[in-house]
């Protein structure tokens, strides 16, 4: 590799990857065909940094540690030469050495996924999105068997007011993909997040707060971008036979799945 190319190279799990100036670690990784687990990221939309599944470790080679380093003195093991960052918001910088697909990081990601599952009502057997759900596919990818934590069993409002789109907040993971798609792509600003802490929830920017009174249309990206079963097109559930759903045919770690997932009105086989 030429010296010039070296200046535009990061290393992920030992693999050298070229990046363009301005790319995040996530952008560079996806462009190179390297999967970093993620839920709230979608190429083309502004990064969000809420799901934390893309947490990676960067070993900064210019950081030197000494025995007096206070981090060494903590009773917990701290990898003093590395720091955890969100790959979706961290700019790629030449020379970064990044750990991604490690048992430790995947265990942390599994815990995060379990937190997302127990925080809502993710009853996959009755969900129209099962088999097409990115949250579920990520959980499969990470080998999640159970929720580990006590269930929150929240009581959240369903909005079925719209003639062709429904909103089931039980499954919302607050990724804000719909918020960003509506604002940045559809130019409508239909959705927002309101409330603080565990009370944060998806709201509709209409006078009544109902989807029916918003400008949302089925052709909007915001109506299709939801990675879970929170925003659904009405009367199109259970159309794809088990065995031919998105994640029956694909692994979540495949690159370029965004197009497949976004074009869900018609199945990829058809």
């Amino acid at each position: 590799m030429s010296a010039e190319a070296k200046q535009n190279t990061i290393t992920i799990d030992g693999q050298e990857i070229l990046f363009r100036q301005g790319q995040t670690i996530m952008d560079a990784a996806l462009a190179a065909g390297v999967y970093i687990p993620h839920l709230c990221h979608k190429p083309g939309l502004a990064p969000h940094g809420s799901c934390k599944l893309c947490t990676v470790n960067i070993q900064d080679r210019n950081v030197s540690s000494s025995p007096s380093d206070r981090r060494v003195q903590t009773k917990f093991f701290v990898d003093i030469d590395s720091r955890s960052v969100s790959a979706c918001t961290m700019p790629a910088v030449a020379g970064q050495h990044i750990s991604n697909n490690t048992p430790e990081l995947n265990e942390v990601r599994k815990t995060i996924t379990q937190m997302l599952f127990i925080e809502g009502n993710h009853l996959c057997p009755s969900c129209e999105k099962t088999g097409d759900c990115t949250l579920q596919a990520v959980a499969y990818h990470l080998g999640m068997l159970d929720g580990h934590f006590p269930q929150f069993f929240p009581r959240r409002e369903v909005d079925a007011s719209h003639s062709s789109v429904m909103l089931d907040r039980d499954r919302c993971i607050l990724c804000e993909l719909c918020v960003r798609a509506s604002r940045e792509v559809d130019g409508k600003n239909v959705f927002a997040i309101a409330g603080r802490g565990i009370n944060a929830h998806l709201i509709v920017n209409s006078p009544s707060g109902k989807l029916a009174d918003s400008g949302l249309e089925t052709g909007d990206m915001a109506a299709h971008i939801c990675p879970v079963g929170a925003i659904l097109i009405k009367e199109h559930g259970y159309e794809v036979p088990i065995g031919r759903r998105t994640f029956d045919l694909h692994q979540v770690g495949e690159i370029g799945l965004e197009k497949v997932i976004l074009a869900k009105t018609r199945h990829t086989d058809e």
Binding site: L123, P125, S126, F153
Partner: peptide, 18 residues
């Protein structure tokens, strides 16, 4: 061993928790 969705997260019957 917790067998099945109901044993693991309450399952469909847990919809009554609403």
């Amino acid at each position: 061993i917790a067998v099945g969705a109901c044993a693991i997260n309450g399952g469909i019957p847990a919809m009554r928790n609403h």
